[in-house]
Design a protein around this nucleic acid. Sequence first.
DNA 1: CAGTATCCGACATGATACTG
DNA 2: CAGTATCATGTCGGATACTG
Lengths: 122, 122
Amino acid sequence: MTDPVPHRTENCLKISQVLSRIGDKWSVLIIMSLRSRTMRFSELKRGIDGISQRMLTLTLRNLERDGLVTRTVTPSIPPRVDYELTPMGHSLAEPVEALGTWAFQHIDRIAGAQARYDSEEL
Amino acid sequence: MTDPVPHRTENCLKISQVLSRIGDKWSVLIIMSLRSRTMRFSELKRGIDGISQRMLTLTLRNLERDGLVTRTVTPSIPPRVDYELTPMGHSLAEPVEALGTWAFQHIDRIAGAQARYDSEEL
DNA sequence: CAGTATCCGACATGATACTG
DNA sequence: CAGTATCATGTCGGATACTG
């Protein structure tokens, strides 16, 4: 793998800021949902299990602020708002997906390790 | 990129659990620190800027519980405890690094987007 | 439909002090 | 050295009600 970025503290700090954003509970789910196509607010809400209206709004605003998502308002009645990944958002989706694939492949092993750990400690 | 894992809600939930762990403020820094070599508790503490003793302990415990890190105690005076990435920990480090590389490459663009967003809204 | 506003409790985290 | 214990605080996020 290419490793052009040494893990100096300075770099890691910046990186962890970005990871904090995408690492929060909902950002990744939203990004993954928008990967295939533009979606409306209500579609996202229905598609992402358990997200509250408040958190969907806040997370979308943050993603928009970061330039990862565009928000397009169509003034009609009822109003319509579409969210779409920017090119940068799409490029982020790739390494996120890689991480997701890893997570999926190792979930069982992790669960096993946790069970073992929990059983031998108390 | 291979995409063997469809982003079904079920999978995404599992994935987001893992992302929550590695997405927290310190786990990634620890994993990256341990990538090159085994380190003692105090070495990690010195190497990771701003981490408190408490959070280092807690995060290491979680990583150990997940099977990502091993903890080796050498009963001596003073005591010595070494932390090391497991093979699974090393395999996680790869996609994390990819994400880190992405973050590093896009940090400026993100900062710019934020500045623009903040200036036009108030 | 797509939000905003408010309240409130749970948890995460830092600071500090103490220990084998 | 490598923790543990306790306390204080601040943020996150859910529930609920209201609005253009």
